[in-house]
């Protein structure tokens, strides 16, 4: 819908447009304010936050809170900063996103182009799995990770994130491939192309947008996860979100707000960068895939 175009714009008039722009800018300020607060206060010494104004720019600029949050702040029992946990998160996210995306693509391909009796039930069950409250699987998940010898390890977290991401990745690819002309597949089949050849040569080359959407979705969800991270990690597999929460909510010592803010931005940085780089893509993908679900 983009019709209220020039003629319409003229009709709504300058005054109306001024109001529209003011409202839009006001909301932009509202959405930016918390980020601004975090950023300016992460660059102030602690006294200045306590005595000064949270919205003011730093009088005395310092990068010390950032250094501290990254490499020396006390998290749990060790003064390591967020760095090791950041690395944990990367080692967890990359395989989990890759596996769930690859499997989701194949599932979507089968569910749209190789339909079989009962495929709707299979898809329905996978789809419903997206929406379960994860609390319901916490206790048995802890058990099975223990049985597999993966309790408190990064591979254990990868397994959990991969499994509980499958519903969404399958949904995305299924919706995308649904619109892909089945005649092309049939023609390739008649030409003798195999199941995987069709997937690789025909579907994959045109899957760029949905792969981007799926990867962004999975990456943000897994990077930002707190529940599984806090339930299934041990000292050397704690992900960044859990470490950040430990940093901020540890009850001992002085509350170093500036370090908390720097840490929060550090934890948010990877997903923020993904959005800045490909946010436009995300909205486009949302239109193509998810909304029409």
């Amino acid at each position: 819908m983009s019709v209220p175009s020039q003629d319409n714009a003229a009709r709504t008039g300058l005054f109306a447009r001024a109001i529209i722009y003011s409202a839009l800018i006001l909301f932009a300020v509202y959405y930016l304010l918390p980020l601004y607060v975090m950023l300016v206060n992460s660059l102030k010494p602690l006294d200045e936050i306590r005595q000064g104004n949270m919205l003011a720019l730093p009088n005395q600029w310092t990068f010390e809170p950032w250094r501290s949050a990254w490499s020396t702040a006390q998290i749990g029992v060790s003064p390591t900063g967020l760095k090791p946990y950041f690395l944990n998160s990367i080692m967890m996210v990359v395989p989990a996103v890759a596996l769930s995306t690859v499997l989701g693509a194949q599932n979507g391909y089968v569910l749209t182009k190789w339909r079989f009796k009962g495929d709707n039930i299979v898809f329905g069950l996978m789809l419903l799995a997206c929406f379960i409250p994860f609390q319901i699987v916490l206790i048995p998940s802890a058990r099975i990770l223990g049985l597999l010898g993966l309790a408190g390890t990064i591979p254990g977290l990868i397994l959990i994130h991969m499994v509980y991401g499958l519903g969404f990745t399958t949904l995305f690819f299924r919706n995308y491939y649904e619109a892909f002309p089945t005649e092309l597949i049939r023609a390739a089949q008649i030409d003798g192309a195999s199941f995987f050849q069709i997937f690789r040569r025909i579907l994959l080359p045109s899957s760029g947008p949905i792969i981007v959407v799926t990867v962004i979705w999975q990456f943000t969800n897994i990077w930002n996860d707190f529940l599984f991270g806090s339930s299934f990690s041990s000292v050397d597999s704690i992900p960044i979100t859990v470490a950040l929460n430990n940093l901020v909510n540890s009850s001992t010592g002085v509350k170093e707000y500036n370090v908390h803010f720097a840490g929060a931005i550090l934890a948010a940085l990877p997903t923020l960068i993904v959005y800045i780089v490909s946010g436009r893509y995300f909205v486009r993908g949302l239109m193509a895939g998810a909304v029409k679900g």
Binding site: L24, F27, A28, Y31, L32, L33, P34, L35, V37, M38, N41, M54, T220, W223, N224, D225, F226, T241, L244, N245, V248, Y257, H260, F261, G263, A264, I265, A267, A268, T271, L272, V274, Y275, I276, G279, R280, F282, V283
Partner: peptide, 24 residues
């Protein structure tokens, strides 16, 4: 410019959002 500004909070972890608003 405006759309990504509206959308970016969704990229953040609830923990990060929580930290920001807790102190704000």
């Amino acid at each position: 410019v405006i759309r990504p500004i509206y959308l970016y909070p969704m990229a953040l972890s609830f923990i990060v959002t929580g930290v920001a608003w807790k102190w704000f």
